[in-house]
Design a protein around this nucleic acid. Structure first.
Lengths: 136, 136
DNA sequence: ACGCAAATCGGAATGATTATGATTTAGAAC
DNA sequence: GTTCTAAATCATAATCATTCCGATTTGCGT
């Protein structure tokens, strides 16, 4: 997923092009890790854009809906990052910088048969720690 | 883990016995599922106890520290439940009632070797859905 | 260029959680 | 059992992320 593709996806789903939306997408394109709403706001402001929290949250929710970005909860706050690829996968997430590394293995495979009668709607598998870069 | 054991653990770690703490532990003993702080407060009040949020959060944090209860984040709110057993395990969690079912399988086994250079501090594997009881 | 629904603004509201300063209490020492 | 002190609790205010709202602006089809 890149900025141009994302804008196309927005169009396809009836959302308009706006400079704010492009600015948001650029941020995610440039910073390839999990960002809090506040971080996003600061990056946008650094680029001489005015932007309200309302706009941030509203658009990020739309982006998540459309699969443009991924969302997770880190220490009580929502964090967002560009969708790295369409295939189902999980993440190692660095507690320091928010960097992620894909984990292709999905633990659901061997689990469903032990949950007969339970309707499974979703699952979460995340590994937390420190990435080699922050380790130094 | 039961109430008496929990009080013992508190004593061993230099925490005093109080009727509020016992009331909290009784709630968890009685309601074997993930509870929000608000639910805990309501249950306690129903038992004719006065209790402030401060006391709830402070004690629940202590309980988590001592391994008396477990904590997770469900739809943006902290939830707590009695530690069911000491062995490492994961959970199916019902979105409706907060009920849990243990999943003994731990996906970390086959994953660590693919994360050389990454220091792993913790991980989370949770399956969400509807339990047979809420399904009806 | 016009019109309108969608998008944005900014400021207020919400709701969970945490901090504060005063008061009460458990439990040890006498 | 009385006293003492640190811990625990209380009530309230503060904080912080997130959402809501009414007013204004803007993208884009006509």
């Amino acid at each position: 997923m890149n900025v141009t593709e994302a804008i196309l996806v927005l169009k396809e789903n009836g959302y308009k092009y706006t400079d704010k939306r492009e600015a948001l997408l650029q941020i995610f394109s440039k910073h390839d890790r999990y960002l809090s709403a506040k971080e996003v706001l600061e990056f946008v402001h650094a680029n001489f854009f005015r932007l309200s929290y309302d706009t941030i949250y509203r658009n990020l929710a739309i982006f998540v809906d459309l699969g443009i970005i991924e969302q997770t909860e880190l220490s009580g706050e929502k964090h967002f990052r560009f969708s790295c690829c369409s295939s189902h996968h999980h993440h190692f997430i660095c507690n320091q910088c928010g960097m992620t590394k894909n984990i292709e293995f999905c633990p659901m495979d061997g689990v469903a048969e032990n949950l007969i009668g339970y309707q499974i709607s979703s699952h979460k598998f995340e590994v937390y720690g420190t990435c080699p870069n922050c380790e130094k």
